[in-house]
Computed example of a mutant assay.
Amino acid sequence: MAKKDIFSARRLFTEGKRKIMLCTERAHFYHRFKNIRGVKNLIMYSHPERKEFYPEIANLLDGSENPLCTALFSRLDRSRLERIVGTTWANRMVFSTKPVFVFCY
């Protein structure tokens, strides 16, 4: 993706003309955005391969009012989840009957 296209997409999002922005782990790897103005709700449909990307991506919400970050996972994501929350919590989360887990930082 050309820099011009990235700038245009970010501008549309910041101005509120677009509601959803899809940002891949690959895009984050190459561009490392510090924040994207206008982000209020971040949904991760797959955990990052590199554990250090999780806080970097979650910090895109920095400066937003009432930010919300949702990370979806299944039992098949256990190894990726382990890298982020550790083995004990990953096992609890994967084998729990609870449908939602809340972490505050």
Score class of each variant (00 low, 15 high):
F33A: 07
A27P: 07
F53L: 08
Y30E: 07
Y30V: 10
R37P: 14
M44V: 05
V39I: 14
N41I: 14
R32L: 10
M44T: 03
P55Y: 05
I43W: 00
F53Q: 07
H28L: 04
N41V: 15
E49G: 03
F33M: 07
K51E: 15
Y54G: 00
L42G: 01
K51V: 11
E52W: 05
H31V: 09
M44P: 02
N41D: 13
E49W: 08
S46Y: 08
H28A: 12
R32P: 08
N41A: 07
C23I: 15
V39Q: 02
P55V: 04
K51P: 10
R32M: 13
R26T: 09
P48T: 02
I36L: 12
F33K: 02
Y30P: 00
S46Q: 14
C23R: 07
R32K: 14
Y30T: 03
H31F: 12
E25W: 10
P48H: 01
H28T: 06
R37Y: 08
F53E: 12
K34T: 13
N41L: 15
G38P: 08
M44A: 09
R32D: 14
K51Q: 10
C23G: 14
I43A: 01
A27M: 13
S46R: 13
I43K: 00
I57F: 00
R32F: 08
F33S: 10
G38S: 05
K34E: 15
V39L: 15
K40E: 15
Y30D: 06
C23W: 14
S46C: 14
G38T: 10
K40S: 07
M44H: 05
R26Y: 05
E49K: 11
E25A: 11
R50S: 10
F29L: 11
E56S: 03
I43Q: 00
Y54V: 02
V39F: 06
V39D: 03
F33D: 09
V39N: 02
I43T: 06
F29K: 05
P48K: 01
Y45G: 07
H28Y: 09
A27R: 06
I36Y: 02
K40Q: 13
H47F: 14
K51I: 10
N35R: 15
I43C: 02
Y54M: 01
Y30A: 01
H31T: 12
T24S: 13
F33H: 03
C23P: 03
K34Y: 05
E52L: 08
T24F: 04
E52N: 02
I43P: 01
I57D: 05
F33Y: 06
I57N: 04
R37H: 12
F53K: 01
C23Y: 10
N41W: 13
I36Q: 02
M44Q: 11
F53V: 09
I57M: 13
R50M: 09
E56Y: 04
N41K: 11
E49M: 07
M44C: 09
V39Y: 02
E49T: 14
Y54D: 03
N41S: 11
K34C: 05
P55W: 00
E25V: 05
Y45H: 06
H31P: 01
G38A: 09
R37L: 13
R50G: 06
T24E: 03
S46K: 12
V39W: 02
Y45E: 08
T24R: 00
H47W: 11
E56D: 09
K34S: 12
C23M: 15
